[in-house]
Measured scan of single mutants.
Amino acid sequence: HRQALGERLYPRVQAMQPAFASKITGMLLELSPAQLLLLLASEDSLRARVDEAMELII
């Protein structure tokens, strides 16, 4: 289940942060499945989480 969510998330994360897409997707997969579904449904929520992840990385 998580694998399938990751496969759906990755291209969207890659479009926002290509250099760190794998790392960010891995970080996002730590969230609950319900939270992941919310990110897939909301571009704004996904962008906010990706921005948060980038702050942790750099």
Rank of each mutant, 00 (worst) to 15 (best):
A4M: 12
Q17D: 02
L29N: 02
L5V: 07
A19S: 10
R12L: 15
R8Q: 14
L39V: 08
S45H: 11
L38S: 10
M27T: 02
S32A: 11
Q14D: 05
A48K: 12
H1V: 14
A19I: 13
M54I: 06
L29Q: 03
M54K: 07
E7S: 09
S22H: 12
V13L: 05
R49T: 08
L56I: 09
Q17V: 13
I58R: 11
R8E: 13
L38C: 06
M27D: 01
R8Y: 12
Q14I: 10
L28Y: 01
F20C: 04
R47D: 01
M27Y: 06
P18Y: 06
K23M: 11
Q17H: 10
F20W: 11
M54E: 01
Q35T: 11
E30I: 06
E52H: 09
T25C: 06
E52F: 08
R8L: 15
R49I: 08
T25M: 15
Q3C: 08
D51E: 14
G6T: 11
D51I: 08
S42F: 07
F20N: 05
Q3V: 12
P11Y: 15
Q35R: 06
L36W: 03
E55V: 15
H1F: 04
A21G: 05
L31Y: 05
Q3K: 11
R8G: 05
I24S: 00
Q14T: 06
L28E: 00
P11M: 15
L38E: 06
S32P: 12
D51F: 12
L38T: 08
L39Q: 00
L29A: 03
A41E: 08
S45E: 10
L29P: 00
I58E: 07
Q14Y: 15
S22P: 06
A41P: 01
S22E: 13
L9E: 00
A21R: 01
K23R: 14
L29I: 06
L9T: 02
S45W: 07
L29Y: 03
M54W: 05
L5G: 02
L28A: 00
Y10G: 04
L5H: 03
L37S: 06
D44G: 08
L28G: 00
Y10M: 07
P11L: 15
T25D: 00
I57N: 01
A4C: 08
P11C: 15
Y10H: 06
P18L: 04
P11H: 15
L38D: 06
E7G: 06
D44Q: 13
L38G: 08
L39H: 02
L9K: 01
R2M: 15
S42T: 05
V13F: 02
P33I: 15
D51K: 15
E7I: 11
L28F: 04
E7Y: 05
L46V: 01
L31T: 03
E30V: 08
E7P: 07
S22T: 10
Q14F: 15
I57Y: 03
E7K: 13
M16T: 03
A41V: 12
M27W: 11
P18G: 06
I57C: 04
L29S: 03
S42Y: 06
I58S: 09
